[in-house]
């Protein structure tokens, strides 16, 4: 669906503050993919995702949406942004309308849609993030909890009916229940509507739980990309890049260090539980439970 070819981005080119934020980045995101982008602070994650919906133009290289160069002169960038929705960090700071309904409807109104269509899309988008339009619609966005405000911001993107959603740290600053709710809604949307998801996050646990593929950035370059399980199977490398692995993967690594032959590539609590039980069942002389890779 989206393809970056040799994308380089230089900020303040030709000035004493010139800084290369991205260097020769190539990657492909297929329709329906769920991709995680991880990297230390300053590795270029936010710069990269702003190229995916045409907010930034590459200094060199190209970005294609369905094989069309989105920075070509004749391409309508507003249409690109409608198809590729980008949720910035702390999006609740961008809520501004008097009611939730008005805020979520802002984008569709600007598309010039009929009021009925705007109303319908707004109600649908709110329902998709688990907020009852009748209850939350008339309320002021500023009377909501942080988690609810975050969901209103996501509904604002969904009301544009995008095909792809880019989420830059969507759960930062939220309590564990709100984190889980937001991630669950995102996955439900993906499954129900085939939405393509790009998740930028410092939470290795969230990336491990949601993403099928992971792209690792370091100082503006892609230094690893592949299936989530493969990327997280190299904890030493990730640590050197300022990153980590999910806690249960760290536990599996420590177990191997202690001579317990647990599978190193576990990603979730349930996988880790099964892997450890397999090994213990083996030494207890019982028949090990059948290995099942989810």
């Amino acid at each position: 669906m989206i393809r970056c070819e040799g994308v380089t981005h230089v900020y303040q080119r030709g000035s004493p503050f010139e800084a290369t934020a991205l260097e020769d980045v190539s990657l492909e995101i297929g329709a329906g993919d769920v991709i995680g982008i991880i990297g230390a602070t300053g590795s270029g994650k936010s710069t990269l995702v702003q190229h995916l919906n045409g907010l930034l133009r590459p200094t060199a290289g190209r970005v294609y949406l369905d094989d069309v160069d989105i920075n070509a002169r004749e391409v309508d960038r507003r249409r690109v942004r409608q198809q590729v929705g980008l949720l910035f960090q702390y999006p609740e700071h961008q809520l501004f309308e008097e009611t939730v309904t008005a805020d979520v409807g802002f984008g569709p109104r600007n598309l010039g849609l009929a009021p009925d269509e705007v109303r319908e899309r707004t109600a649908r988008a709110l329902a998709q993030v688990g907020l009852d339009p009748a209850v939350f619609g008339p309320r002021s966005p500023f009377s909501l909890s942080n988690g609810e405000m975050r969901r209103v911001a996501i509904a604002g993107l969904l009301a544009m009916e995008p095909r792809m959603l880019i989420l830059d740290e969507p759960t930062a600053g939220l309590d564990p229940a709100s984190r889980r709710e937001i991630l669950d809604h995102i996955m439900r949307l993906r499954n129900a509507r085939g939405l393509t998801i790009v998740l930028v996050s410092h939470s290795m646990d969230a990336v491990a739980r949601l993403c099928r593929r992971v792209v690792v950035l370091d100082r503006g370059r892609v230094v690893a990309q592949g299936p989530t399980r493969d990327v997280f199977a190299d904890p030493a490398r990730l640590a050197a890049l300022g990153l980590g692995v999910p806690q249960v993967a760290e536990c599996a690594r420590l177990l191997r260090e202690r001579g317990v032959p647990v599978r190193p590539d576990v990603l979730t609590v349930e996988e880790a539980r099964r892997a450890i039980l397999d090994v213990l069942a083996g030494v207890a002389g019982r028949r090990p439970a059948p290995k099942k890779v989810p």
């Binding site: 230390a40 602070t41 930062a172 410092h202 290795m204 300022g242």
Partner: peptide, 8 residues
């Protein structure tokens, strides 16, 4: 909460 894993 704003930091990468190494910063944390």
């Amino acid at each position: 909460s704003m930091l990468d894993p190494a910063g944390q």
